[in-house]
Amino acid sequence: MSSATLAHPSVDEKQEPGTGKLGMWVFLASELLFFGGLFVAYLYGRTHFPGGWAEASRRTDVLLGTVNTAVLLTSSAAVALAVACEEDAQARRWTARLLSLTAALGIVFLLLKCLEWHDEWREHLVPGPDFALHAAGAQQFFALYFLMTGLHGVHMICGIAALGLLARGRSRGRAWAGARELEVAALYWHFVDAVWIFLYPLLYLVDRHG
């Protein structure tokens, strides 16, 4: 095979996707199973301890949760727009700024999350001997709540670091911060958003009318 063929593949992108994009999708499939086990545990708890689940969920901060959801959805739109701008010669100058905006929104999300956790700590909603609620299953709900939002938070930190690095590299015209890298990082960010899309109703909106 000639070096020219290796350097410039001629096949259509749909028939042979870049290894980066396919690799990220395969990784996201494994991440789905990572979170998926916790979601199955959640479903078990909700079906077996409905009273405890409802009482515990009502103690979560629905206002902060809703604001955080809006922040994350907006960040997903921002990174999608960054990818679109990268593909247009005239709009390419906006890419770095949109990536920075996405990372900034991610930081806002984490700050609000820390505020929530702090409030829950003060209200004795962290599982342990001083746990405030006594309904069966309430402690399990909050154990899963902290585990799932904590794991999601760790993923957010990785995403913020990646997007921040790409924003910096893009603004300086670095070769490693190109369209392919951007698209792969954006896929990861959208997945983290999709996980939160399910966490929001499952953690914050159980039996709110009760």
Binding site: E13, K21, V26, L28, A29, L32, G36
Partner: peptide
């Protein structure tokens, strides 16, 4: 393409 859609569906299917 088909390959990427397959990867997405495979993850969902395994879950």
């Amino acid at each position: 393409g088909v390959l990427i859609r397959l990867a997405a569906v495979a993850g969902l299917g395994a879950w």
